[in-house]
Design a protein around this nucleic acid. Structure first.
Lengths: 146, 146
DNA sequence: CTCCCTGCAAACTATTTGCACCGTC
DNA sequence: GACGGTGCAAATAGTTTGCAGGGAG
C-alpha cells in the first residue's frame, strides 16, 4: 500500500511538471492505474471510474490514458485482437505471461532480457529504445479445470 | 527462389489438406505472402494483388489471411497502433526488430529465447504455447539520416 | 479570468459480415 | 452441379475528434 501511494504521488508530480491539471476524474483514473496489479482494459478503467463519477465519459478515459502514455506513466499492452490493456503500476517495458483462457496477466522475472538487448544492438546496429516480450499459454488454474 | 517455391508449395498442399479451393486470387495472395521478406500489411497485400486481379476486394484479402492464420501458415504481427503486419515466410513465432522511423522489420537470431521459455515454464507453471518478442528502435540507415 | 478538461455525439479506421453471383472441384 | 469463394455494401468495434460549457490554477 505504501508502494501504491508512492506510485500515485510520482504520477501526480509528473503531471504537475508537465502542466497538466489535476481534476477529480483524472485523479480517479490515476489511482486506478497506480493500483492495478491486473492490467485493466480501458473499459475496465471506465467502469471503475464511473463508480465514483457516474457522468464520466469513455472519451475522457481514453484522453487521459493517451496523455499518460505520452509522458510514459502507463505502459500499453497491445494484443492483436483489439484488446488493449494497461499497466500503470510498472510503466516501463517488462515481460508478460498471458493466460489465453482467463486473460490473466502476470509479470515474471527474466533478467536474461538485458543481455539479449545488448547482443541485439551489437548484431543489428539498431539503437534499441523499446521492446515487448509476451508469452501466451495456459495458467495452472485453467489447466486444472480441464 | 527455390526456398520461396518450396514455401508456396507447402502452403498450397496445406490448403488442399484442409479442403480449401485454389482460386486465382487466393493463389496470388499466397504467393505474395510466401515471398514477403518485408512483412507486409493487409493493405500492402491488397495493392499487390490488385496489380494482377484489379477487381479483388479488400474483404477477400482479409478472409484469406484469416484463413491462413487459422491453419498457421501466416504469422500475424500485431502492433498496438492498429498496424497489423504479416509474415507468410516464417509462419512460426520468432523475434522481430522494428524500426520506428521507416517501419522496416528484420528477423534477428536469438537462440537464448528457448532457454527463457523453459525457465518460464518452471517458474510460473504456465503451459507456454506461444510468444511474441519484438524490439523497437532506429535502424542504422535512419540513424545516419539524422 | 484564462485555458485546459470534460462529456456528449459524431467521425474515423480497421476489420467483419450478409448476400447474390461465380467458378473450382 | 454443388458448394465454397468472391466482391460489393453495409455493419461493427475500438478509438478519436469537435465543440460548448464547466472548473482548476
Amino acid at each position: 500500500m505504501v508502494d501504491t501511494e508512492n506510485r500515485l504521488n510520482t504520477m501526480i508530480q509528473k503531471l504537475r511538471e508537465n502542466d497538466y491539471r489535476i481534476t477529480p476524474q483524472r485523479l480517479a483514473i490515476l489511482k486506478i492505474l497506480a493500483v492495478s496489479e491486473n492490467h485493466p482494459s480501458v473499459e475496465k478503467v471506465y467502469e471503475k471510474v464511473k463508480k465514483n463519477f457516474p457522468t464520466t465519459s469513455l472519451a475522457t478515459v481514453y484522453k487521459n490514458i493517451a496523455m499518460l502514455k505520452e509522458i510514459n506513466e502507463v505502459l500499453e499492452l497491445g494484443f492483436g485482437d483489439g484488446s488493449n490493456r494497461y499497466d500503470g503500476n510498472k510503466p516501463y517495458p517488462h515481460p508478460h505471461v498471458v493466460c489465453t483462457e482467463c486473460k490473466k496477466i502476470i509479470d515474471p522475472d527474466l533478467v536474461a532480457l538485458e543481455d539479449m538487448t545488448r547482443e541485439l544492438t551489437r548484431e543489428t546496429g539498431f539503437k534499441i529504445v523499446n521492446h515487448r516480450l509476451d508469452f501466451f499459454g495456459i495458467c495452472p488454474d485453467c489447466q486444472k479445470k480441464k
